[in-house]
Structure formats: structure tokens, C-alpha cells
């Protein structure tokens, strides 16, 4: 039983997540060359999880329970990130992959996931260094040192920080001082501290 607003939200969100899921399944087909039957199993279970999660999300949103990144479930506030439909789809897909792929296919899949993560990390670190460089005019040595320092203490959430670069050319991401400051000179330190406030 969804009300009209929840139905409209479902219509709006379903194709977005379906398209994301399709992208993952195409990639998986390239990497693991699954049989038709395996593809059917993965599609079926992940699509069912998607439908369930998006319905729930639309329902909560229509009920006004999703606000400023916080969802209220049974009176308990939870971070929106944990209940976003995609997390549920991802979990089901991972489960289904572990269940239906052969060991060899699974090894290929895991290696590909590692490669992608590493590529994303490198690219995000490069973009963060570039943003810091625009504000602080780093030397080449400093750029290399900050890049290495970022990768050494990398946090997944910093990938999201890169999005800020699209919003504003003056953007400086919030990053821990201990990762950046040891590599700056006195002038750069004061600009950095001012920007982090």
C-alpha cells in the first residue's frame, strides 16, 4: 500500500537504481563471462532487492521520515547512507555473486573490484591534491608528498569530497591536519587553517 506521493517517488527512483544495477551487471559479464543461467540468477535476486528497497525508501520519503541525511526507523534515527536503496541492492548482489559464481569467476570479480577501488582512490587523491594546489600553490615535491600522505591514510568518504570540486573552484575539502599540514610551509599552513574553519 503506497500512497500517491510514494508511488510517484518510486517511479522516479526505480529507473535510476535500475540503470546503476544494469551497469554493474554489464561490468560483471565482461569480467567473469557468466553463463546465461548465472546472469538470470544475479539479475533476479538483485532486481527483487532493488524493488523492495526503493519501495521502502519511497514510502519513508513520502512519510517525511527522510530529512537531512537522517532516517527515522521505529523511532530510531539512522544515517541515511545505511538505508539508501543502493546499499541493499549492493548487499544482495554480493550475496548472490558469492552464491552463484564459480571460484574462478569469483577470483576474477574480486580482482576487478580491487583494481577499480585502487583506480578510484588514485583519481580522487589526484583531484584533492589539485584542489589544494589551487589554493596553496604547492611545489612539485609537496604535491607528491600530499598525494602519498592522502593515499596512506585514505578514507572512503574522501571520494565524496571530490564532488565539492564540481561546486566551487575555491573549494577546499575538509581533511585531517596531520595528513596535510606536515607538508606545508608557514604561509600555506595559515591559509589551510583558515580554510578549514
Amino acid at each position: 500500500g503506497l500512497n500517491a506521493q510514494a508511488k510517484a517517488l518510486l517511479q522516479q527512483y526505480r529507473p535510476i537504481y535500475m540503470s546503476k544495477l544494469s551497469g554493474h551487471l554489464y561490468a560483471l559479464r565482461e569480467v567473469c563471462n557468466p553463463t546465461r543461467e548465472q546472469q538470470e540468477q544475479l539479475l533476479e535476486s538483485s532486481q527483487a532487492a532493488l524493488e523492495k528497497a526503493v519501495r521502502e525508501y519511497a514510502k519513508q520519503m513520502a512519510a517525511g521520515k527522510i530529512n537531512r541525511g537522517i532516517v527515522v526507523i521505529n523511532g530510531m534515527a539512522q544515517m541515511q547512507g545505511q538505508s539508501e536503496p543502493w546499499d541493499a541492492v549492493r548487499n544482495e548482489l554480493d550475496k548472490s555473486i558469492a552464491e552463484h559464481l564459480t571460484e574462478d569467476q569469483l577470483a576474477l570479480y574480486k580482482q576487478d573490484a580491487r583494481d577499480r577501488r585502487e583506480f578510484r582512490r588514485q583519481a580522487a587523491a589526484t583531484n584533492l591534491v589539485s584542489a589544494i594546489d589551487k589554493q596553496l600553490s604547492l611545489t612539485e615535491e609537496q604535491r607528491d608528498a600530499v598525494h602519498a600522505s592522502l593515499l596512506k591514510s585514505w578514507q572512503e568518504s574522501w571520494e565524496v569530497a571530490v564532488r565539492g570540486l564540481l561546486q566551487s573552484p575555491q573549494y577546499l575539502p575538509q581533511l585531517p591536519d596531520k595528513v596535510i599540514v606536515p607538508h606545508l610551509n608557514a604561509n600555506q599552513k595559515s591559509v589551510w587553517k583558515a580554510a578549514q574553519r
Binding site: 554489464y26 563471462n33 538470470e40
Partner: peptide
């Protein structure tokens, strides 16, 4: 992205 459709694997 076109919806994913299962197909026969490459030979």
C-alpha cells in the same frame, strides 16, 4: 544505460 538482459556467454 539499457536495462541488462541475460545473454549467452562469449565462446
Amino acid at each position: 544505460v539499457q536495462p541488462f538482459e541475460p545473454q549467452d556467454p562469449r565462446p
